[in-house]
Design a binder for these strands. Structure first.
Lengths: 200, 200
DNA sequence: TCGCTTATTAACTGTATATTCAGTTAACAG
DNA sequence: CTGTTAACTGAATATACAGTTAATAAGCGA
């Protein structure tokens, strides 16, 4: 019996290690045995905290989803000035911070799991709903301020999310081929055009 | 020895069954044993044709990539009339056919694999290159015809691909919530706006 | 110090995994 | 009919897997 810790410390530590393996080896390579070996503990200790692998996966997904939730929350505007809000929104959405939170490899694993795991699917959908609600609200405010074209905010939000998801996906495959910077500014301009700002 | 077939028949049959399981259970659930059981053959027969699981995976990926390649090829215009070409291109890109070729669940699995398998990664990148080259060419032609705004065709192609990838991703999560039809027409209009057509 | 809770390990189970190898059977060419 | 090739099977490999149960040991309050 090496180190003795309590659940408050051990559980997140297990979760962290599981997520690391998920990134490195994908869901097909993420096993309880590997997590235990990496941590230098007995596999059954993991079973002690998470009674089944399924719950370990769910809690890992919850962790990722929660991090994105926090990020969305942090995006909430601190200023009333619409022009600054728009700029800040854009900078955040196509900024690096957003993409640093969670490894894209982990996200793909999670989505991959969601195809067969209804619980995981529900969580992703809930996150997207939150995201959409936030963006719709922001767009509506920008429309009211006359900064972007007045259209159905929810539908515009869906298009915007679609674009951002594609951006994220593509950045992974093209960031090395060409400077990520110019792709980012291209994307920003494309978003502004989609939203219908006066200029450009 | 039940049925005796030759490699030309057996190999693709194994591949087909493997892909089916990949869609149903993901890469984490796709095993040689399951494929064998589903086909009513012995696991070692699969090893006989594909000496390792790795090559089975690679050949499965090749199959999917090839199908997309064919699709891109089929998109090549049959008419010289630029307006019709633009319409046809749009219809194909956001059309159902494109998304029916391969199950999106399989695609996610493939991308998921690509994070750890350089061979698979290479194949995806090659496909994207082909796709980009095709789209760049088409956009250039449309620019020459004065139908869309004149800009760097390659960069516009990247933005377009990004948008389409996001569309594809999102359609899966939102198609039930709202009519896919209106989302599709929204997307079409967004693309036209991105490309910069005269009206809207 | 006693006793309780809980963290932790040890020793398992049964099943699934990919892969190997040696052998068998069918088809077919000479 | 014979020999060769290729399709196919069966059994066995070692390893990894998730999960169970029972035994220890540490910490802590009484």
């Amino acid at each position: 019996m090496r180190q003795r810790q309590n659940a408050e410390l051990r559980k997140p530590e297990i979760l962290r290690n599981f997520l690391e393996i998920l990134v490195e080896e994908g869901i097909e390579g993420a096993s309880i045995g590997k997590v235990a070996k990496r941590m230098g503990i007995h596999p059954s200790l993991i079973m002690h905290y998470f009674s089944t692998k399924e719950t370990l996966i769910i809690e890992a997904v919850d962790h990722i989803v929660h991090e994105y939730g926090v990020l969305i929350d942090r995006m909430k505007p601190r200023t009333a000035d619409p022009a600054r809000r728009l700029r800040r929104l854009l900078d955040t959405l196509v900024g690096d911070e957003w993409h640093r939170v969670s490894e894209i490899a982990a996200d793909f694993s999670v989505i991959s799991i969601s195809f067969r795991n209804p619980e995981v699917d529900r969580r992703i959908r809930r996150l997207y709903s939150l995201y959409k609600r936030f963006l719709s609200g922001e767009l509506r405010a920008l429309m009211d301020a006359g900064l972007i074209e007045r259209r159905d905010p929810a539908r515009r939000a869906e298009l915007l999310m679609s674009m951002l998801e594609g951006y994220r996906h593509f950045k992974h495959f093209f960031v090395s081929e060409r400077s990520a910077k110019s792709f980012r500014s291209d994307m920003k301009r494309a978003i502004l055009r989609l939203l219908g700002t006066g200029g450009d």
